[in-house]
């Protein structure tokens, strides 16, 4: 039997909202695909484009950046900075021919466990037909 492709997602979650949201999904026993490796960061604004590129380089099939809703940032405006920066990263990745589905950003609050599970479910569904990401994967 052919093995089904299981996409690997790296999710950079801000500590105050999105990470807490994913915890809520966990403690509430909500079901979502196990394809995601969450990495908690202090703020979505602290995510350097380097993180994203090296996640792809180390073999991520998809990368998710998630932070607090606008206005809710623990550091007042970190997520606003993130929004600009991630826009640029997203545009650049699309420009060089990376499928736009592979890189996504979301706002997930600490209360939105359900939203988090939906995001991951959809993300996995979108990545499945694309197959493994080999374009940026390290070929050292």
């Amino acid at each position: 039997m052919e093995e089904k492709f299981e996409p690997k997602i790296i999710a950079f979650l801000c500590k105050w909202c999105s990470s807490a949201g994913s915890d809520l999904a966990g403690v509430s026993r909500m079901k979502y695909p196990p394809n995601v490796v969450p990495i908690t960061v202090m703020c979505s604004g602290s995510i350097s484009p380097n993180y994203i590129l090296s996640a792809f380089k180390d073999g991520a099939d998809g990368v998710l950046v998630s932070g607090c809703h606008p206005g809710d940032c623990h550091y007042i405006k970190g997520n606003y900075y993130a929004r600009r920066r991630i826009t640029l990263v997203k545009e650049l990745l699309e420009f060089i021919g990376i499928e736009p589905e592979r890189f996504q950003m979301s706002w997930v609050s600490a209360a939105e466990g359900a939203k988090y599970t939906e995001i991951i479910k959809d993300f996995v569904k979108e990545l499945e037909p694309l197959g493994p990401q080999n374009k940026l994967r390290s070929n050292l």
């Binding site: 484009p49 380097n50 590129l53 090296s54 380089k57 640029l88 990263v89 650049l92 990745l93 060089i96 940026l136 994967r137 390290s138 070929n139 050292l140």
Partner: peptide, 21 residues
């Protein structure tokens, strides 16, 4: 090490994408 010195595809992409950003 975000970018290795080797001139292989993945490292070249890392270098040029980071520079562009």
């Amino acid at each position: 090490r975000w970018v290795e010195k080797s001139p292989v595809s993945s490292e070249n992409f890392s270098y040029h994408l980071i520079r562009a950003l």
